[in-house]
């Protein structure tokens, strides 16, 4: 097989994209670590880091990482029902419901963070 096997089929391409978006996850994690580090170093370093983040290159990077992250989360949420099979009584919970529980949890957690921040 060639290394470009994933170009042959739409579903393969979607798979590779989903896998590549884990780089976006990694990017945010590293950024977060730097953020914590700057906090620990005191207000000067923190403001300097914030200034750095405002540069157009970083804004662009953050926005594309955000898009990647959304793609990542949504595709995984939709797939979660495959691995998680829940039965209540005799009925198997439909996959859409399993996925929507993920979405709801996502929204709630995001809301809590927003509430803490502001």
């Amino acid at each position: 097989m060639t290394i470009f096997w994933w170009t042959r089929k739409k579903s393969y391409l979607r798979f590779i994209l989903r896998e590549l978006t884990s780089l976006a996850v990694a990017f945010f994690t590293i950024e977060m670590i730097f953020l914590f580090w700057s906090l620990k170093e005191g207000p000067d370093v923190y403001h300097e880091f914030m200034e750095f983040l405002r540069s157009p290159v970083l804004v662009f990077l953050n926005l594309s990482a955000m898009a990647g992250l959304l793609f990542h989360s949504i595709t995984w949420f939709n797939l979660s029902a495959k691995a998680i099979v829940v039965k209540i009584g005799k009925a198997r919970i439909p996959g859409k419901l399993v996925a929507s529980v993920n979405y709801i949890a996502w929204i709630i957690i995001s809301a809590v963070i927003v509430w803490i921040l502001y």
Binding site: K9, S11, F15, L79, K82, A83, V85
Partner: peptide, 26 residues
Amino acid sequence: CTFVGDCSAVCPKNVDPAGAIQRYKL
């Protein structure tokens, strides 16, 4: 298995092997 998921898409009997494998991983 990296969960490409095409196995389940082509299965003529709706066996969903991808689902079986992910449940196994869990």
